[in-house]
Nucleic acid binder design. Structure first.
Lengths: 154, 154
DNA sequence: TTAAATTATTTACATTCTTAACAATTTTAA
DNA sequence: TTAAAATTGTTAAGAATGTAAATAATTTAA
């Protein structure tokens, strides 16, 4: 077989040198695997992020969680609606501010989250096995730098 | 100011250890900066990927390009439509297969792409400056591993 | 105490991705 | 050679995600 137009024959040019492109390809792949692992839970990467913050920081408002995750406030509404309909999270009136909702895991949510984390850790281990000694903390450090970088507008 | 609910007070829990989460945050940030740099060209990261492949591999079919970039071929249609409407890319009938279109940069597309790459390289340099000696090839290598990993279905 | 800011929410919209279907064409197999 | 299967570009529909603007309720600041 002559392999015409197969991806092995492709010259990626500058793409092969761009961190942004490589990040994208890696992120898509790892997110797809995450979603496969967690499909039986009905949980996407985005939902898992919210759950993780709520579990470790019970009582936060929706806006605080959105800020923590770099999301827009308005996007939280449907996410929390969904998690509430799954009986995983509940909105409670905030004691200090009657405009806002404090978010908590429900008792079922606590159990659910523990099982979910076990699955997420399997997924993570599968990818971490690709990294050599010391590489995981290093890539996380580099990714933190890239995520925090705010270049001056020009 | 007591900084109530500011992101500094947030416990990210397991998220802080997940390569997938860190990848996501880094990727969103670098893509936003890419888009800002290239907004005057009307080019998104996705369009730039297609242009880069076409420039280095003139005459490829839409499906071959989609495969190279990990996209679905149906998504190529509107992308190529857009690039054609910008007079950057043109579809030509394939000599060997009357079902397919061979893609090429137009003469204007060649000039356009050169200017675009100059801007992309400025963007890239801004982020590469965050990485120490030897870290860029290393992160690209790690990202390649993560992007290529196909865990066995379980 | 008024004016400004913030919260959650709704709505609308643009993107992006998937999936399925289709006609035209090519490839494969009988 | 011919019939069946696969491939190409395309269209259409639906889901997911992100963004932006507007609103009422409430809080904060002047």
């Amino acid at each position: 077989m002559t392999n015409l137009n197969s991806s092995e024959d492709i010259d990626y040019g500058i793409l092969d040198t761009l961190v942004g492109y490589k990040l994208r390809r890696a992120q898509v792949n790892i997110f797809n695997d995450f979603s496969e692992h967690c499909s039986r839970f009905g949980i996407t990467p985005g939902l898992f992020g919210v759950l993780s913050i709520v579990e470790r920081n019970p009582g936060l408002t929706q806006t605080a969680i959105a800020n923590a995750l770099g999301n827009d406030r308005s996007a939280m509404v449907s996410v929390v609606d969904r998690l509430e309909s799954m009986n995983i999270v509940e909105r409670k009136p905030s004691a200090s501010d009657r405009r806002s909702h404090a978010l908590f895991l429900t008792p079922h949510g606590e159990v659910f989250y523990k099982e979910l984390v076990a699955e997420v850790l399997k997924h993570e281990a599968s990818f971490t096995s690709l990294l050599n000694e010391g590489e995981k903390p290093l890539i996380i450090d580099m990714l933190d730098r890239i995520a925090a970088h705010k270049p001056a507008k020009q």
